[in-house]
């Protein structure tokens, strides 16, 4: 096994033929494929990569989970704590922004941020761009994206009743949220 482990800079032994697509942990320099991480390169379909499960910063198209920290009429601020299913170390959160035009796919101009999110809600979103100096731009404009956990004004965990509403099981009050469609339905 030990001979299969590669170190950064070490050439990757490849069978003759066309080069495979290179994924993470590999790079090509002077027409020689080399490793850039410690590990064993493996094929995932047609791409060759060294995979290491470790926290990484958000990139476009990564699915993120975060808590809403601040609301304004034009955007909601998000503290991103999970990127692509991998939790970030405590204290190393990234900040994301959901602009009002990115909340849902239709009737974008009628979106009221206050009717879609509240402070403390846990939101699932997808990163659309690296954004500006401060934050990443996140969208919830998909059925499976939106609020996945919220508490009512009375402090109880609410359950979704439609894609726009959530209900408190104790008081029965209805609050407005942009809900994510639960998985497996």
């Amino acid at each position: 096994m030990s001979s299969d482990f590669l170190l950064p800079g070490q050439p990757v032994p490849l069978p003759k033929g066309p080069l495979p697509q290179l994924g993470k942990g590999l790079y090509i320099k002077d027409s020689q494929v080399r490793a850039s991480l410690v590990g064993v390169p493996r094929y995932e379909g047609s791409t060759l990569a060294i995979t290491r499960v470790r926290p990484h910063p958000p990139a476009p198209n990564s699915v993120v989970l975060g808590t809403v920290t601040r609301l304004s009429p034009i955007q909601a601020l998000l503290s991103v704590s999970v990127v692509d299913g991998i939790p970030l170390p405590p204290g190393e959160e990234f900040t994301g922004v959901i602009r009002s035009q990115d909340v849902r796919a239709t009737e974008k101009d009628k979106v009221k941020i206050g009717d879609c999110f509240r402070g403390g809600d846990v939101v699932r979103g997808v990163v659309i761009s690296l954004g500006d100096a401060r934050s990443y731009f996140v969208t919830t404009a998909r059925n499976d994206l939106g609020v996945i956990f919220a508490t009512s004004e009375a402090g109880h965990t609410m359950e979704p009743v439609s894609w726009q509403e959530m209900r408190c099981p104790k008081t029965g009050s209805i609050e407005k949220r942009k809900c994510a469609k639960p998985e497996g339905l």
């Binding site: 170190l7 950064p8 800079g9 993470k24 942990g25 790079y27 320099k29 080399r34 850039s36 991480l37 410690v38 290491r52 470790r54």
Partner: peptide
Amino acid sequence: LANAGIEMFGL
């Protein structure tokens, strides 16, 4: 850096 799994060209 290598131990942290940060991608680099070489050690």
